[in-house]
């Protein structure tokens, strides 16, 4: 089946590769036999379309139901405008504030990390697409993007960025992004229940840093000798 590669994220030293089965809109995570993630230098790239034979992973734990085991693959081509492709395909896209992601099921820690903690109210899967109503700005730690709250008593939401693509300083409102939930986890020796924490896998349609010319640059050039 033809699969569009929609994400490539860091997972330890490996790469977690996400995709979309074009014929039935199923969101998948591409594992190798033995349930291993892809190597970091995998030839799966975002925007690629591959014809892949696969089997469903048997021992999935919701909401991470996307895992498939790649049996064979052959390169088909590339989708240049992923935003348009995903939109035209009619994929579910969460729109608005972070509270809209996974239809409001997320809880937020005091430091603004999103999570799913209630096993009785899980989303139907662990990945999704989101278009924010406000810009997301790269934190000073250069590891998170922040959705600033206008209300000073509401914690700003922070999204850890785990994608392979180079970071940008700002993700403008209206940009299509892919978000995902990390596997169930809790800190060692903690009495907390396990949670799936929200992460930002990537975005589509933004120029890479340094690969664009702004209007300001044009204006300044008039004064250069």
């Amino acid at each position: 089946m033809e699969i569009l590669i929609t994400s490539k994220t860091h997972k330890g030293k490996a790469a977690c590769v996400g995709g979309l089965v074009i014929s039935n809109k199923r969101l998948v995570r591409l594992l190798n036999p033995g349930n291993w993630d892809q190597f970091a230098d995998t030839d799966f790239d975002i925007g690629d379309v591959w014809d892949i034979d696969f089997q469903d992973r048997e021992d999935v734990e919701p909401p991470h139901i996307e895992d498939i085991i790649v049996q064979s693959k052959s390169y088909v081509g590339k989708v240049e405008n992923i935003t348009e492709f995903i939109t035209t395909l009619g994929m579910t896209i969460y729109r608005g504030s972070p509270n809209q992601i996974f239809n409001g099921r997320l809880g937020w820690t005091g430091n603004g990390s999103g999570y799913i903690g209630n096993r009785d109210n899980l989303p139907s899967n662990s990945v999704g697409f989101w278009i924010s109503d406000k810009d997301l700005v790269l934190d000073s730690d250069e590891k998170h993007y922040t959705y600033e709250s206008e209300n000073k008593f509401v914690t700003s939401k922070r999204f850890p960025y785990v994608g392979f693509e180079p970071k940008v300083d700002r993700i403008p409102a209206g940009t299509l992004m892919r978000i995902s939930l990390a596997r169930w986890w809790k800190p060692e020796d903690s009495e907390m229940n396990e949670r799936c924490y929200l992460q930002l896998s990537g975005w589509y349609g933004l120029p890479e840093p340094g690969n664009y010319t702004s209007d300001e640059d044009d204006d300044i050039s008039e004064y250069l000798i």
Partner: peptide, 19 residues
């Protein structure tokens, strides 16, 4: 105490996510 607990969780979460 809650602030400190949140900060600890944040640090652990960064390690878990490999940030």
């Amino acid at each position: 105490k809650k602030s400190e607990k949140d900060a600890d969780l944040d640090d652990n979460l960064k390690k878990y996510m490999g940030l």
